[in-house]
Simulated scan of single mutants.
Amino acid sequence: MATQNPDERRIGSAARVRAARTRTPFPRQAWRRRQEDLALELLRELTCLANEIRHANLIQLHRITAAQVDHAMADPALASAMSTLEDLSDGRRRQVLFVNREYSAIILGHRIGAYGWAEMIGHLRVLARNEVFKSYWTMTDQHRRSLPQESLEAKVGRAVDAIMDELADDPDEWWVVGPADAEDTI
């Protein structure tokens, strides 16, 4: 019969007790739930980061476009190269390019979340009172028709069309025209 080490039993039992203690505060289900919570939080953070990058890219694109428009407004040769509209004087072409830039800035503000749909419509209501914008809007009708119907630009175009129609009917009530509440109704 082999002799047993009297401490052997205590070492093994101490290890078992220690292992049991470490498992008790962190049962497998709680640990897994915590891992899932961390993964979901990471996914939310990545989604926010992706949105911020997208917004930064939209803003940068707008800056590039605005710089090109600035160059075109300063040089009539560049303005005619940038504009597809015909039979415009140099001064009128500059005005149309500028009002297009204002219109684009309003839409950009909505795209990046600076303001919601109703506020964007409010800005467009004010812009729609401008005679240069009215002329621009009429001249660019065919451009808007080429947009995909589900795009934001097409939805905004339909909203501005409604604003323009109501302004034509009653120009004194410009602050209450157009669809203000939901973009889904357009």
Rank of each mutant, 00 (worst) to 15 (best):
A2Y: 07
R9T: 04
R10F: 06
I11W: 12
I11G: 12
G12V: 12
G12S: 11
A14P: 07
R18Q: 15
A19S: 14
A20P: 09
T22S: 14
T22M: 14
T24V: 07
T24E: 13
Q29Y: 03
W31P: 11
E36N: 06
D37C: 05
L38R: 13
L40I: 06
L43S: 01
L43H: 00
R44Y: 01
E45Y: 04
E45T: 06
L46T: 12
C48A: 13
A50W: 01
A50F: 06
N51Y: 09
I53G: 04
Q60Y: 01
L61N: 15
L61K: 15
H62E: 08
A66E: 09
A66N: 12
Q68D: 09
Q68I: 05
H71P: 09
M73E: 11
A74N: 11
A77E: 04
A77Q: 04
L78D: 04
A81H: 03
A81R: 12
S83Q: 00
S83H: 02
S83E: 08
D90C: 07
D90F: 02
R92H: 03
Q95K: 14
L97C: 01
F98E: 13
V99A: 05
N100G: 13
R101P: 03
Y103A: 04
Y103G: 01
S104I: 04
L108C: 03
L108S: 05
L108M: 10
G109V: 05
H110D: 00
I112L: 07
G113H: 03
G113E: 06
Y115T: 04
Y115C: 01
Y115K: 00
Y115D: 02
W117T: 03
W117L: 04
E119G: 00
I121Y: 05
H123F: 03
H123N: 09
H123M: 05
H123W: 08
L124W: 01
R125V: 02
A128V: 01
A128P: 03
R129Y: 01
N130D: 14
V132G: 07
F133S: 10
Y136F: 08
W137S: 06
W137C: 07
W137Y: 03
T138D: 00
T140G: 07
T140A: 08
D141A: 13
Q142F: 00
H143Y: 05
H143G: 09
R145W: 04
R145T: 10
S146F: 04
L147N: 11
E153H: 11
A154V: 07
K155D: 00
K155S: 06
V156N: 10
V160I: 07
D161N: 14
A168S: 08
D170S: 09
V176H: 14
V176I: 14
V177M: 02
P179Y: 01
P179T: 09
D181T: 10
A182E: 14
D184W: 11
T185H: 06
T185K: 08
